[in-house]
Design a protein around this nucleic acid. Sequence first.
DNA 1: TTTATCTGCGCAATCGTTTACCCACTAACA
DNA 2: TGTTAGTGGGTAAACGATTGCGCAGATAAA
Lengths: 334, 334
Amino acid sequence: MKNHRATIKDIAELSGVSTATVSRAFSGKGRIGAKTRDLILAKAEELGYRANIHARNLSSRGTDTIGFFYPSHKNREPDYFINEILLGVSDTALQAGKIPQAHPFASDLDEEALDDFKNFILGGSFAGIIIMGGTEGARRFLEIAETGRIPYILIGELPGVEKYTVKYQIEQGTKLAGGYFRKIGRKRPAYVAGFLDHVDILKKQGFAEGLADLAEKTVYIEGGSTFQHGCHAYERLRNECPECDCVLCGNDVLAIGFMKAALNAGVKIPEDIAVIGCDDVKISRFYHPALTSISFHEYEVGERAVQRLLKLLENQPILPEESIECDLIVRDSA
Amino acid sequence: MKNHRATIKDIAELSGVSTATVSRAFSGKGRIGAKTRDLILAKAEELGYRANIHARNLSSRGTDTIGFFYPSHKNREPDYFINEILLGVSDTALQAGKIPQAHPFASDLDEEALDDFKNFILGGSFAGIIIMGGTEGARRFLEIAETGRIPYILIGELPGVEKYTVKYQIEQGTKLAGGYFRKIGRKRPAYVAGFLDHVDILKKQGFAEGLADLAEKTVYIEGGSTFQHGCHAYERLRNECPECDCVLCGNDVLAIGFMKAALNAGVKIPEDIAVIGCDDVKISRFYHPALTSISFHEYEVGERAVQRLLKLLENQPILPEESIECDLIVRDSA
DNA sequence: TTTATCTGCGCAATCGTTTACCCACTAACA
DNA sequence: TGTTAGTGGGTAAACGATTGCGCAGATAAA
């Protein structure tokens, strides 16, 4: 029994043909007779042959891998929002015969880590990449992709970048929340910030628009984006503005933390205070009360990003940006 | 300006040395003079050189990639349990200079998908792999790894497989839950099943042990492992055994679904019915009431799996199996 | 000075594919 | 019968690294 993995050469010998022919039998490219091909495939099966992936990629100057890069925070809770996008990315890539690869990067990306990523990306690991925007770290990946002339798609916002992106309607979304609070007759709004980045600014703006004349009374609480931050935000709000009767949180986990602290304090939701979250992640509907939230249709965002990247890879023309609709999903918390 | 990516050859020419020397400058292997090396590194920097990863892998017959294969269910909710393990795997791999790659596989793995995985794994994509056990799909991956002589570590249980695994103490864990229900004086237990696989059997057994004389009165509800299943489980339990006063659920999301339905029906938790979940996933502490759950220390499981795989890769001897302790984390639901 | 040891580096084979190019053969047609 | 087209498949050069071997020169030991 051979001790090494069967190669194309072994099959060639066994079938009495050249390696070129064997290669053609598998690739379908080039001309080859039907019986020769069948013979080759049979022998290959027999030997349990599998093409060496490195050799293939080297020789053909390409790969089927698509990278997905997203920020991951140090003190991390799972990021349910990005998980949804990732799901969309993975499914779509797989369906197209591409191999998805997820790579989190630290939000405080140091030079060393960045260098590893450069080796990785510029070393030819990816046919194309998808970058999660919103943070400055994302910009570094854009730069890498640019210098390596690697096709990429940006998801979300990054100031100054217009090509090629898939956006979700952040301002539109929070505007819906503002409008909804008005509609149900709330008077004193609050906003609890998430990551304190560019995205947050847009969220605030949209919220203010939706609130219209109520906007100027808005109380802003800042801190962070985790469950704990949400709990603290409630405590702070109770001190700073006990009369607030509705709150929009920068993400769902934050909203859940807020609700948890409020419920513990005996507050009734939504009677005493109405709560809306952002992202509409899966767990929001699990909560009691079920969280009203703004859905940016994350899965679809991931899906679309891959679809666009695929076109880029095939040199098909695409619009510089596309946008996915958002919705307010009303449940029990507001 | 050159249009192709700089190669080792370009640098060799530019520095007036051979490609062998350039390679040595980067790898640190072999002998090389200090100034030659510095010169080479400088030129490389200048050209923005990054080693082609495919060429490297082909030439050196190896790769730094570690694969993580886990079952993913069709109608999927994010699997918070596996997410935790994955986090442990990723962090540990990265620290060791390896590149982690996560690959979900459908629980009803068909031949075609399996063949893709074979190409992938046997094609040399991985230095070693980590396989999430518990389902029969996992066995197929073991087989692939065996035929390709690829080092692997199995996480959890798979009947008949003893080498090399990292186990978490399933029976021990649910036994704790059973004991706890006795201790707090509950009389009529129920068990809500998760995936209905091998793992579930162990959970039932452990639970029964912990319940001791209460075990025979246990009501078993089966169905699935999602939030929805949890909701239905509550409805069924109310019909089948309204006097049940404590329930163990096969996983946390199931438990949360159960609680949600119960709370909606006006039931008090834990007063009317005490609820314990399995896995102690992050979201469990968010819930209101916070869920009491059995922690299998998933992060650590993932961590340990990688540590063991690394030893295998270095041909260091390791024990056939190791086991990670479990704990009952008491919160507010029981 | 001679011999042994060590250091730095080049030569060239190798890893396992893909693919451009070319040649031999068959079939068809005038 | 000679020309043309079309088919099947071989030859060999890539792809971009790694690495065993050996050689020349420097240094140390005798």
